[in-house]
Design a protein around this nucleic acid. Structure first.
Lengths: 147, 147
DNA sequence: TATTGTTATACTCTATAACTATA
DNA sequence: TATAGTTATAGAGTATAACAATA
């Protein structure tokens, strides 16, 4: 009986903590979507811009955004239409690099500033709480040899 | 100059912590998707089952799953086809309640057990670390009068 | 032969609108 | 008149497959 209660408590704790982590992440993503929208961008475009600190092959962007190369073509098209990126040739002539224009770089900077201003972790935690949180998140992300 | 560096450090910290939270949540969702798949279920169906601890009107499920009532019809159809839920009439005769069958309740229990066994928070954190994490997550989820 | 980016197309998930039966 | 669930349809987001250019 006691054993069963312990198992139930464990199930409850697992569910509760996981659900909280997911809720917080969803909220963070919603905040980011709002920030992107305030700059006239969809999330995927804003994410692409945030990744283009330095010019990158479209294939690399596909990997970073975890989507297909064919989908990056459309993303690059939209960003180029808005004058936020340029396609520049790579040394390997199959490759095209995406490079932020000046306007694109300005958008990237505004994105980063807005995230810093509005991120939940900044608004709702003290410096000390953030310092406590970080190693816990690192432990959760550590990729051990576990199953 | 120092001011600018502080701003940059803050932007970096905001981005880093937010990205970690999102990564962890994505991983947790992927784990849940795997568990669901091992029971032959898509995520949305598994989530519905997990919510049906007690019979609930389809409208309530729509709210809990944050989707439209029309979409719940399809979810209920699939669960019913698999013999995991039954539609039972409510006292208000417009309402149909979804109730887990015995097999559905067994699936619900297996889901909860698998989550407890495999959740990142359980596998990668000690009891003490979980105890430290919880109040931080609560602070992040607290809904204050902030903008 | 393998890889990059492109194009055309198809698929998945979910919402909207119109409907019925109740209330 | 308003609400619960259903149906048919439409849209957003993304992938797959075939292709041209280059390696």
């Amino acid at each position: 009986m006691i054993v069963h209660m312990a198992r139930t408590a464990r199930m409850k704790e697992a569910h509760q903590l996981s659900a909280m982590m997911i809720d917080i992440a969803e909220q963070s993503k919603a905040d980011f979507a709002e920030i992107a929208a305030s700059l006239g961008l969809h999330v995927i475009l804003a994410r692409a811009i945030a990744l283009l600190d330095t010019p990158a092959p479209m294939r690399d962007l596909a990997e970073s955004l975890a989507c297909d190369r064919s989908y990056i073509t459309g993303i690059a098209d939209q960003l180029e239409e808005r004058g936020l990126v340029e396609r520049i040739p790579g040394t390997d002539r199959r490759v095209k690099l995406l490079q932020l224009t000046d306007e694109g770089a300005a958008v990237r900077d505004r994105l980063a500033e807005s995230v810093a201003d509005r991120a939940l972790v900044m608004r709702r935690l003290t410096n000390e709480q953030r310092a406590n949180l970080k190693p816990l998140l690192e432990a959760l992300l550590k990729d051990p040899q576990d199953s």
